[in-house]
């Protein structure tokens, strides 16, 4: 199986001698969802910036489609890898369609404007997140969940094969988290790869194919969710006692929920 994105032994220090990432390695295969979990400040965001090519790690290699990510031009890179930022409000009330069209930027020249074909790509992307009827609405008037979906659609319009998502479940209610992640899961089944940072381990349990559990810049554990999302490792990662609830059916045991343990008073 081909490897779309492969990071080997990434170390990064903003200030010399104070590394925020230490020896992280991971491999992203087509059609998989990789969750990055860990406490605030554990290095998730820095790792995302390195993986997107925006930041060059102090040492280590990141290969995109088998080639060093820093040998691509920024346009070429944006044709292969997209970043879905955290929810924000732009200064101007662009329509949903205008927002999604911006995903066509890496496919257009500096002086280019979207053509009919680009509009078709954008409208298809919007339809595939189920918001076709919102096309002409101002993006700023959408709810958080809808904005997140529009940003995913922009990533689709970008036609890249890897999408990095920065905390897609923050600020969203349970319904919208499910709505967004079900669409992510469907797109992954169609062959797109996702790297998702999150503070909701239960979503990793539900949707992840791979989990990288981080602590203080290191990979505490990396691999299959059944292997990484255990009481022992989660408690270590979050510096607290956690409980994993399992469901047993037909002799196999599946983790169903991750809960914090009450502190003894």
């Amino acid at each position: 199986m081909s490897r779309m994105l492969e990071a080997s032994d990434i170390t990064h220090a903003y200030t010399a001698g104070v590394p925020v990432l230490r020896g992280i390695s991971l491999t992203l295969e087509p059609g998989t969802i990789l969750y990055l979990l860990g406490r605030n400040g554990c290095g998730k965001t820095t790792l995302m910036q390195c993986l997107s090519g925006a930041l060059k790690p102090t040492s280590g290699q990141i290969a995109l489609d088998g080639r060093d990510i820093h040998t691509y031009t920024s346009t070429e890179r944006a044709q292969r890898i997209g970043l879905i930022p955290q929810l924000h409000t732009p200064a101007f009330a662009y329509t949903v369609r205008e927002m999604i069209l911006m995903g066509r930027a890496p496919h257009l020249g500096l002086f280019g404007t979207p053509s009919k074909a680009d509009y078709v790509v954008a409208d298809d992307a919007l339809a595939s997140v189920g918001l076709a009827h919102y096309r002409d609405r101002p993006y700023t008037q959408l709810s958080g969940g809808e904005r997140q979906l529009v940003l995913i659609a922009r990533g689709l319009a970008q036609q890249c094969r890897v999408l990095l998502m920065d905390e897609p479940d923050s600020h969203l209610d349970l319904n919208n988290q499910q709505r967004v992640m079900e669409i992510v899961a469907r797109l992954a089944a169609e062959g797109l790869s996702f790297i998702v940072t999150s503070h909701v381990p239960n979503n990793a349990l539900t949707y992840a194919h791979r989990v990288l559990l981080m602590k203080a810049g290191r990979a505490l554990s990396y691999g299959d969710p059944a292997y990484t999302l255990t009481e022992l490792l989660l408690s270590e990662a979050y510096d607290m006692e956690t409980e994993v609830i399992y469901e047993t059916a037909g002799g196999s045991r599946t983790a169903r929920a991750i809960l914090p343990k009450r502190r003894a008073s």
Binding site: S52, A54, E76, G82, L83, P85, M102, A105, L110
Partner: peptide, 23 residues
Amino acid sequence: WLVRWRLNILSLGDAEAATLGMN
């Protein structure tokens, strides 16, 4: 007029413009 459409992307901020392949 030539860069008019790029202004949309610049108005989203540097980080987002960079992920869309711009300098």
